[in-house]
Amino acid sequence: MLQTGGDIDSSEALTERQQAVLDAALRLLVEDGDSLTMAAVARRASCSKETLYKWFGDRDGLLTATVQWQASKVRVAPVDRKGLDLASLTASLERFASDWLRVISSDTSIALNRVAVGHAGSGKDDLGAIVLQNGRFALARRLKPVLEAGREAGLLDFADAETAFRTFFGLVARDVQIRLLLGDRLQLTEATVGGDAARATQQFLALYGSKTGGANNRPQGL
């Protein structure tokens, strides 16, 4: 069985066949929303229910792995904690921001989040908690070490990594996700995503860039 309690940080945690099954589950969520079943996923993915139960345990396990698979598309570029400079920190933050904007604006994420919101407090399953734990909270666990490395290198100045992460998340997301969930047909082109990611990163560095790190540690043009 897959270990679905932790983060899926890369496709290396899954075989190609398992990735195909999770992609099938995501497509069904877009098409059918709340009515996703193990049998429907098995039919769409051309595999047996026994295989799904072997890999994922049960429906909640499948949903958890599906959310993790979607969240794994938001990459965190590794940084050299010893030789970290402003350019590499900026690149890591911009990559995270652009990936996250692409993911939340995809049809699959919009559908997944709509179902999760509909389930929150309904007593059905724990999809809302699954999305929180394996989506937003997992992304925080991945990015906070980068922020802390930036603080250790004298590039960032903050007292609490969670607060710094929430600020960055807010600068990246703005009102995009809620508008998409409510049906606004925002057109996020590659140029728009790249520009928004760069802008959010520069705004974050303006807020949290170290005041004592020297001129080379300050974002340019701010």
Score class of each variant (00 low, 15 high):
Gly6Trp: 05
Asp7Gly: 07
Ala13Ser: 14
Leu14Val: 08
Gln18Gly: 06
Val21Gln: 11
Ala24Leu: 09
Glu31Leu: 11
Gly33Leu: 02
Gly33Thr: 09
Ala39Phe: 03
Ala40Tyr: 02
Val41Asn: 03
Ala42Arg: 03
Arg43Ser: 00
Arg44Ile: 01
Arg44Val: 11
Ser46Pro: 05
Lys49Ala: 00
Glu50Met: 07
Tyr53Gly: 05
Trp55Asn: 12
Gly57Cys: 11
Gly57Gln: 07
Asp58Lys: 10
Asp58Glu: 15
Asp60Gly: 09
Gly61Leu: 01
Leu63Lys: 01
Leu63Val: 06
Thr66Asn: 04
Trp69Lys: 02
Val74Leu: 05
Val76Asn: 03
Ala77Asn: 03
Pro78Asp: 06
Val79Thr: 09
Lys82Thr: 14
Leu84Pro: 07
Asp85His: 14
Asp85Arg: 13
Asp85Ile: 09
Ser92Met: 04
Leu93Cys: 05
Glu94Trp: 01
Glu94Val: 13
Ala97Cys: 02
Asp99Gly: 07
Leu101His: 12
Arg102Val: 02
Arg102Ala: 10
Ser109Glu: 13
Asn113Gly: 06
Val115Gln: 04
Gly118Pro: 03
Gly123Leu: 09
Gly128Met: 03
Ile130Gly: 10
Gln133Ala: 15
Gly135His: 01
Leu139Ser: 07
Arg141Phe: 08
Pro145Phe: 13
Gly150Val: 09
Gly154Gln: 12
Leu156Glu: 08
Ala159Ser: 14
Glu162Asn: 12
Glu162Pro: 00
Thr163Asn: 11
Ala164Gly: 10
Thr167Trp: 08
Phe168Ile: 01
Leu171Lys: 05
Val172Leu: 03
Arg174Thr: 11
Val176Asp: 13
Ile178Pro: 00
Leu181Val: 06
Asp184His: 07
Arg185Glu: 15
Gln187Tyr: 09
Thr189Ile: 06
Ala191Pro: 00
Thr192Leu: 02
Thr192Phe: 05
Arg199His: 04
Thr201Phe: 01
Gln202Met: 05
Phe204His: 10
Leu205Ala: 11
Leu205Trp: 04
Ala206His: 05
Tyr208Pro: 01
Tyr208Phe: 15
Thr212Gln: 13
Thr212Ser: 13
Gly213Asn: 09
Gly213Lys: 05
Gly214Lys: 14
Ala215Ile: 12
Asn216Ser: 15
Asn217Ala: 15
Arg218Phe: 08
Arg218Gly: 11
Pro219Trp: 10
